[in-house]
Amino acid sequence: MEIVIFGATGQVGRHLVSQGLLKGYKVRAYGRNVHELPDINKNLQLIKGGVFDEADVYKAIEGVDAVFSVLGGASDGTDKTRSLGMKVISSEMKKAGIKRIIALGGKGVLDAPDGGLLIDQEDYPQEFVPVGREHQKAWEILRDSDLDWTFICSPDIIQADPTGEFITSSNIPPLPDNGRVNAGDLALFMLQEQERNEYIHQRVGISEI
């Protein structure tokens, strides 16, 4: 199994890299600051590049079994890395003939009980709307593609190792929903989903139990 991780040096990306290597995967870690990762595993390939560089993104994607996107950026809406990055990644995946992508977004993209998205509800926290719209655009790019996508809609991310004590649901927040999830558990679930393919063409709600 060979995977590429966009956003490999971020909060969740680092867990994806380490857990992927523990599984024996060949891991391509892509990003501007990948030199920050310890290059001590023969199965780890560090690829320095920007997510807007189509040629570099294509080279990173070519030949892998699955793509993981955990792109980050500023939360005030001025940073378009999540949406424009997804546009480039999905386009280059199509060129390379790669179908499977598992991407990380925000909770606001899940369905609300009375219709619409959570981000569109009056009681949705306004401070999260700008970054939530970026997540929404990234999801819409995947939704409108012919890729085999899964979009993880994360609540608050806690910098903590995996516990395996989390719950997921399709397109809506899970019950119980405690509004938080460990970075390590997000990575664990994303890798499990790559193996199980339970949520193809679906958004996923997730929460620590």
Rank of each mutant, 00 (worst) to 15 (best):
40 I>L: 06
131 V>Q: 00
149 W>F: 15
63 G>M: 04
193 E>F: 09
205 G>K: 03
98 I>P: 01
90 S>Q: 09
165 E>M: 07
16 L>P: 00
116 G>S: 12
70 V>W: 01
173 P>H: 00
133 R>S: 01
24 G>W: 05
79 D>Q: 10
144 D>Y: 08
142 L>N: 03
13 G>I: 10
52 F>Q: 14
1 M>I: 08
203 R>Y: 09
9 T>V: 10
81 T>C: 07
28 R>W: 12
144 D>R: 05
168 T>D: 00
69 S>M: 11
6 F>K: 05
56 D>K: 15
150 T>W: 02
44 L>M: 09
200 I>L: 15
125 P>F: 08
109 V>M: 05
64 V>S: 09
54 E>L: 06
208 E>I: 08
19 Q>H: 09
125 P>K: 06
179 G>M: 08
168 T>A: 15
167 I>D: 03
157 I>Q: 11
16 L>H: 03
197 N>C: 12
3 I>M: 07
21 L>T: 04
176 P>V: 05
25 Y>G: 00
23 K>V: 01
4 V>E: 06
13 G>V: 13
128 F>H: 13
174 P>N: 02
114 D>A: 09
181 V>G: 07
158 I>T: 07
5 I>A: 08
167 I>G: 01
167 I>C: 01
90 S>K: 06
26 K>F: 05
82 R>Q: 15
169 S>P: 06
148 D>G: 06
145 S>A: 13
49 G>F: 12
104 L>I: 09
164 G>R: 10
109 V>W: 03
137 K>N: 14
23 K>Y: 01
13 G>M: 07
65 D>V: 01
25 Y>L: 15
153 C>N: 06
27 V>N: 02
18 S>A: 13
134 E>P: 06
58 Y>G: 12
37 L>K: 05
187 A>E: 07
191 L>Y: 07
130 P>L: 11
59 K>F: 02
137 K>Y: 13
32 R>F: 04
186 L>C: 07
132 G>W: 01
137 K>Q: 15
9 T>C: 10
177 D>G: 01
74 A>V: 00
53 D>Y: 03
198 E>F: 02
26 K>H: 12
208 E>W: 02
124 Y>L: 10
192 Q>G: 08
176 P>M: 12
52 F>I: 10
182 N>D: 11
136 Q>N: 06
62 E>Y: 13
37 L>Y: 02
57 V>P: 00
201 H>W: 11
189 F>R: 03
138 A>L: 13
77 G>L: 12
51 V>R: 04
53 D>I: 11
197 N>W: 01
192 Q>Y: 12
121 Q>K: 14
8 A>F: 09
128 F>K: 10
13 G>T: 07
38 P>H: 11
110 L>D: 11
108 G>H: 05
170 S>I: 11
146 D>L: 03
170 S>H: 09
134 E>N: 07
142 L>F: 13
109 V>D: 14
116 G>W: 08
137 K>F: 14
36 E>R: 13
163 T>P: 10
27 V>G: 04
46 L>D: 02
1 M>P: 10
19 Q>L: 14
